[in-house]
């Protein structure tokens, strides 16, 4: 048991580490609230990767060319990989993957609400790559400098892959926009449906974001929700221009004085409703994940039984069979 004096010293060391922009590592002392905040954030991120496979995953069997089929399948596989190593990062904090999965299925932990929207046409695959992955990158690049070492390192790889996905999505839209009139309509329609939900990915406005300030003090988070949202809009407008699509916001315009784009306010009431469970696909997403987990239980149990039996046989005979 650490004495009070020990704890004061440990806390001082932790705060000095964070303030100096050094990394906190799994065996280092850390405040329990810091640990809990990280587990919550990393688990939510991992869940988002796994649930996020669903809207696009449904298009793999229907992709209209073999090249697009391979690209999309590899992308969805990357998301499973991100989920896997983010769960790994959470485990360095003492969390357990099975337990985190249970919390997701029971609705006790969230995932990004963007994945509660449906992917209606193949153009949605491109728009998800361009806008949703684009917004995710704005959110995640600063996390590569997060104070918690394993999370920061995981994010370096996640961001590289996300950036590749974003360019793939844009390239699909670029190709479709130069295809038939029906394809151009599909692209514009998908942009119309995903633009506002993408802006909501940055979370509520700063004034209404309860967890942000502490996370910023601990350097888990580096920029406010509104700063990141602005950065995303500024980055995306010229890309939309080149693509030849219209972003569905009549208030969107360049503000010379600010050096940024002005834009309308997302419907944060809708965001709250979707987070609260009342989005177009919330029930479907969790039901699919639950079914996969439950339908696969007998496979996992078989693997455990086989491993145990093999270990016993090894013990009995002294050699592995």
């Amino acid at each position: 048991m650490a004495t009070e004096a020990d704890e004061r010293e440990l806390r001082a060391h932790f705060e000095e580490t964070v303030a100096a922009d050094r990394r906190v590592e799994p065996r280092d002392w850390m405040p329990e609230a810091y640990r809990a905040t990280l587990v919550r954030q990393i688990a939510q991120h991992a869940h988002s990767e796994i649930i996020g496979m669903q809207p696009e995953g449904d298009w793999i069997t229907r992709a209209p060319s073999l090249r697009r089929k391979a690209i999309l399948w590899a992308k969805v596989q990357d998301e499973a990989g991100h989920g896997l190593y983010l769960y790994g990062a959470a485990e360095t904090l003492g969390a357990d993957r099975d337990d985190l999965t249970r919390r997701l299925l029971e609705g006790r932990q969230k995932y990004s609400s963007i994945f509660n929207y449906p992917a209606a046409t193949f153009a949605d695959v491109g728009v998800i790559g361009w806008l949703v992955d684009g917004a995710a990158i704005c959110n995640q690049v600063p996390l590569c400098r997060s104070s918690y070492g394993p999370y920061a390192r995981a994010m370096v790889r996640v961001c590289k892959e996300e950036s590749f996905h974003q360019r793939q999505g844009y390239e699909l839209l670029w190709t479709m926009a130069r295809g038939t009139a029906a394809q151009r309509e599909m692209v514009q329609d998908a942009v119309d449906r995903w633009w506002w939900p993408s802006l909501m990915m940055f979370g509520p406005p700063d004034a209404a974001s309860p967890n942000s300030r502490r996370s910023m003090a601990w350097r888990i988070k580096r920029h406010s929700n509104d700063e990141l949202r602005q950065r995303f809009v500024d980055m995306t407008v010229p890309q939309a221009d080149r693509l030849g699509v219209t972003l569905p916001d009549p208030e969107l315009r360049w503000n010379e004085e600010r050096g940024h784009h002005d834009f309308g306010t997302p419907d944060f009431a809708e965001l709250a409703r979707v987070i609260g469970g009342d989005g177009p696909c919330n029930a479907e997403r969790v039901a699919r994940r639950t079914a996969a987990h439950e339908d696969g239980a007998w496979v996992r149990e078989a693997a455990v039984a086989h491993a145990q039996r093999r270990a016993r046989r090894t013990d009995d005979s002294g050699v592995a069979r």
Binding site: I50, G57, W73, Q77, A291, A292
Partner: peptide
């Protein structure tokens, strides 16, 4: 194999089935 996407019994199996499927797709192309 693509029909398993998001439905595999474990994440590791999800990744493995995608590897197999992508290999086969590459051979087909």
């Amino acid at each position: 194999l693509a029909e398993w996407v998001t439905c595999a019994p474990e994440l590791e199996i999800e990744l493995a089935l995608a590897n197999v499927g992508l290999d086969l797709l590459g051979q087909a192309r």
